[in-house]
Design a protein around this nucleic acid. Structure first.
Lengths: 155, 155
DNA sequence: AAGATAATCGGAATAATCTACCGAATAGAT
DNA sequence: ATCTATTCGGTAGATTATTCCGATTATCTT
């Protein structure tokens, strides 16, 4: 992955592609005020540099049948390397866990979890999360309203 | 937006497009075992039904120059309709706030915030967040490690 | 400042892809 | 069994991506 310096044109490209990455290259070039080929080259560079890490369909969780959404605060009872690594890999390999961050503060991890319904979440807790070694506590904060739908990085 | 029933083929399509929404329709059809035209029709239906809400480039925040990442727990001092609405709209219109959820539990909101650096975050707090009316407390949990990079809804 | 070198530009050609339309096949209802 | 409605896969024309090339601009050396 080559390092690149991000220009203001790049930022415009990134913003546009975060908003809709299936627009044609000609449209994109027009929107950011470049020629089609220059724009295409720049996109390729951003991909190669890993600034654009991929392209993803944005799925409406509710409409996809995922009615339960929560943010879970997790605390570990042990912090030795082995336990931490085990928990990390287990958590991030689990499909329901759509985000997983190790954080400073009162909790060791912040998870965002999506399930079909509360029953499925219950199973997630009982059959998976609480069976992980070294989980001291897991506090569930149910999401009442998702106030920002699109994941856009402010560039 | 028409309602549709989501088949197992749809789930395969959604999974594939969450992983890479720029693959060609022919590739996608091949991957999910459909003919190109059937697959294309199904994708269009998923879009029209709002299950697929859009397509976005996934940006590596670090490489894009956003070195500060935190989860912020926000509590309000008042919960009347006016104050809540004001806070909600201010928060979600702010670029640094990449996610904003209203939640049950000890806090009223969970924010995920991305900034260039700590100084920028300081400005975000002092010049914006703490100036919002009715903010009782805002607790910053700095993200030490992002353990799950791709936003994929488990369908 | 002048010249040499390298990087970047926009436009054109072609290879690949999308998208709409078609008749055939299938499933459901009467 | 027959009609109707839906879904199927394949095809064709329009659109788009991607490469290549000469021209232009920027950088560096002397």
């Amino acid at each position: 992955m080559t390092d690149i310096e991000i220009t203001s044109a790049d930022r415009a490209i990134i913003r546009a592609l975060q908003h809709d990455c299936r627009m044609s290259n000609a449209q994109l070039a027009d929107k950011v005020g470049m020629s089609a080929s220059a724009c295409w080259r720049r996109v390729r560079l951003l991909e190669e540099a890993g600034v654009i890490a991929g392209y993803s369909a944005i799925v409406d969780a509710d409409r996809a049948g995922l009615g339960f959404h929560a943010i879970v605060h997790v605390r570990l009872s042990r912090h030795d390397r082995g336990a931490v690594q085990r928990v990390m890999s287990e958590l991030s390999s689990r499909a329901e866990v759509v985000e997983c961050f190790a954080t400073t503060g009162q909790y060791d991890y912040h998870l965002r979890v999506l399930c079909a319904d509360m029953a499925a979440y219950r199973r997630f807790l009982d059959d998976f999360l609480f069976r992980l070694p070294a989980i001291e506590s897991a506090q569930t904060n149910v999401v009442l309203e998702d106030m920002k739908r699109r994941i856009v990085v402010p560039v």
